[in-house]
Every structure is written in structure tokens, then in C-alpha cells.
Design a protein around this nucleic acid. Sequence first.
RNA 1: UCCCCAGUAGCUCAGUAGGCAGAGCAGGUGGCUGUUAACCACCGGGUCCGCGGUUCGAGUCCGUGCUGGGGAGCCA
Length: 460
Amino acid sequence: MERTKIFELLNSDDSMEQVLIKGWVRTRRDSKGFSFIEINDGSSLKNIQVVADEKLPNYADVKQLSTGSAIAVGGSLVASQGGGQRWEIQADDVQIIHLAPEDYQLQKKRHTDEFLRTIAHLRPRTNKYGAAFRIRSELAYGIHTFFRERGFRYLHSPILTGSDCEGAGELFRVTTLDLSKPPLKEGKADYAQDFFGTEANLTVSGQLSAEMFALALGDVYTFGPTFRAENSNTRRHAAEFWMVEPEMAFCDLDGNMDLGEELIRELTTYAIDNCADDLELFARWVDKTLMATLENIAQSDYIRLPYREAVDILGQSGKKFEYPVGFGNDLQTEHERFLTEEHFKKPVIVYDYPKSIKPFYMRVNDDGETVGAMDVLVPRIGEIIGGSQREERLEVLEARMEEMKMDKAPMWWYLDARRYGSVPHSGFGLGFERFLMMITGIRNIRDVIPFPRTPQNIEF
RNA sequence: UCCCCAGUAGCUCAGUAGGCAGAGCAGGUGGCUGUUAACCACCGGGUCCGCGGUUCGAGUCCGUGCUGGGGAGCCA
């Protein structure tokens, strides 16, 4: 007999004669003549209640069932005689698959997130983390749905890369050299003898690859892991995270902002529509204002604010900021928070940043001072999207690279794209974990990644 | 990397003025009961983060290290 997922049973319209469920005991309560066992199999936030009668041949063993134990229950789905649940399983047969000993760490009570991080291998068995990772799964699917409906192609950009040209932070070196005695050349490690014959790293962005494919397939997106070796110790940073990076040919900055706004709005709607049960947990226990926040994000038009105007608003705000505001200074966290949380109270897209604070590939505007960059800022999280229109003019791009003292030689292929059929194109990166934080109200990025990697921590 | 806070039972925490190590939950045993954060009674459980110092005496004060958290920088 095949097992039925608990999610299906709880949503059943009718009682059922013969069902088999398998799952883990969340809690058990004894009564005179029978025992109530709450089982969860991960298919849903909700448990199903099993009624195990003392007439079961192994009832003595059933009474020993502890939290965390794995069991299989055969029986019938019947309307519950007690309050609190519609259906329950009247057990004909309870098989103990594995008995969890008394030192099982997850108790029938709330644990702190900090403690659960120390048992990251067990935390998905809790209500909160089960919900978080079901939502993560649903939204990953939602992202593919969003792009597919719009004719985008899914690109698998490389994880290993030889280019260090994006300047998007510190890189993780990849090598097969023996670090205790690497081959030396002029006192330095000789990467010519390394696996790839040159220095290699983990990717910090799929953007450059995506640009090449946008100029072939039109509209593409990548969705995969990204690595930054920054020594960042904050609740918003991880060394390994997932990023969504669309790239569109024949698209300017306005079109780019349109897509970014639409993506956030649609994905938020997708979460509200498809993750109602799991979201309710977060609205109840994590952030009371969550649903109102999500409705606001899903329904409002976002503010579009040129960087110069953002600087003016901050300058005239009368607020004392720790960091000075002025053209040429990047917006600091305190500035972003003021704009999204206090001034506009909704997502804000800041665009046309000074070129001095942005990377080489962003398209120089006609004023010669700014580039077609855009950041989407949301309350509480801060920057959730960073993107730009890319510089498609070969001479301008080369001039910028020279200005920034970059070596053009290894970038020959990137420049080639500007030699043959170059067109305006744009794209951005969405931090998937930051998006999940926004959707769930979870405050620490380590709690929306199955096994988070941060400085000094790669356990599990 | 910088600034701030914390570390006491399996978990969450209290510990007063420097003077015998505590509670709730969890676990064990028994009882009661269509229960549902079940309830009642009893029981077991400690490297007070490590090292050093002050003191007759340190969980408590001082120094230092480690770990965790928050904020900032960097960024998604």
C-alpha cells in the first residue's frame, strides 16, 4: 500500500477507509484506553492526529513513542470526535520505524533561532523552519514560472570562473595545488601549473555570461549559487547565496526597472497565493505586520527616484546622519532606511548613480557624470536588487576600463560582444535569500538558507 | 575588520550587597483524563564558557581568550 501525504488527508472532503501515512512524531498525549499521536511528514505545516487504541497488539510500545520518532500508521481517515481538527486517523496498525531516544534536541516548545542554528541538521523538522523551506521551494518555482511566462530562457552560468573582472567583492580561490608546497615562480604560486593553467575562482555573478546569452537568445536569466569571500558579519550577508540575474537585449534602464518591480510584485503575490498556511505562521509568530507589508509590496507602485533627488531629499530631511550626504557619496544603510521606511514607506528604486562609485560595465549617461544604475530598496531589508543598463558602446567601455586601470586582455570576449551586433541591454541581480527574508519576516539570512556559510562557519 | 551586548541544568532564563546553585519547560516514574503548548505528584540532572588575578571566600569584581548575537563597513 502506498503512503498518502498528510497534506492530502487534511484537505480531504470525505473520510477514507484504508490509508497509510509515514512521518515523525511531534507529540503524544495519553488518554484512558488510547493515545493521541501527532504526526508530521513535512508535506504541510499541520500535523495529523492519530488515535491509537489500547487494543493494538504493540500498544505498550506505542506508549513509549517519543518526540522525533519515525512511524508508519495504517488506518482510516475519520471525522475527529474532539475539537481542534477536522480529521484524524483511527489506527489499525502502528509500525515503529525508529524510536528517537530521550536526548533528542528538539522539544515540544519554542527554541531560539540561535540554538537551532547549532542543530541546523534538525531544524527543518520544526514548524518555523519547515515553513521557511517550503516557502523557499515554492518561490524558486515561482521565479522560473515568472520568467518562462515572459519568454525568458534559463541559463546555467558557470560556477567556476577565471575572470576577476567584476569587482563585486572578494573571491574564493579554487585550486588543486598542494598548499603546503605550491610550485613557485618568482616567489609566488605558479598558477600555470594549477588545474586550469591560470587562477580560478568561484563566481561572484553570472552577469557577464548572461550578457553573452542575452545577445543571442534575447531574454535570459540565471538562478544559482553565488560566492563572496567578504568578511561580512551581518544578518544580511552569507558567503554562499543564491541570486536571480535576468539579462535583456534591446532593453534600457526603464525597462530594467519595470522588470525588477514586476518581479518583486508578482513573486510576492505568488507567495501570498501559494504559501498561505506557512505564511500565516510567520504573520503570527515572527512579524505581526507581515501580511500588511506584503500587500503593500504586492500592490503599490514603487517610487522611482534619481540619485540626485535622493541626495536632495536626504539633505533637506533635517535628519542627522552619521555619514555625509552629497553627490559622489554612496547611499549608506541609514540613508536607504530613511527613504524606504520613513520618507516613502514603500519600495524605492534609486537610479542614475555617479559613475565614480559604480563598476566599469554600467552605461554612461549623457551627462557624463552618472551611469544607468538602479537599486531597488525595500523597508527592513535594504538593497534587494542591484542592476544597470550595460555599456554597449565599445569605445566608451574601453575608455572606462582604462580609466579604472583594468587589464582589457582577458576581457577580449566581453569586448567582442560590443564589436559584433552590439545592442542596448540591461539586467539586474536579485538576492534570493534577501527576498525570502522580506517574504517571511525572518531577520537573519542564516535562517533562510538550509546550511548557511559565513566567516568561520561551514559546519554541516 | 570596527563598536556594543551576552555566555549559569538538555532548552529558556533568574541569581539581590562578594557568603550553601535556582525556576519553568524538557527527560524519568506514577496517577488522571477524547487529549491537543494536556493536567497533577514525585525523581534525576551543573566544568556557572576557558585561563589568569583580587579576596578569608568569586556565578557575581578585574584582565585576557573563545563562542554567540546586534549595529556599521562591503554588498545581493
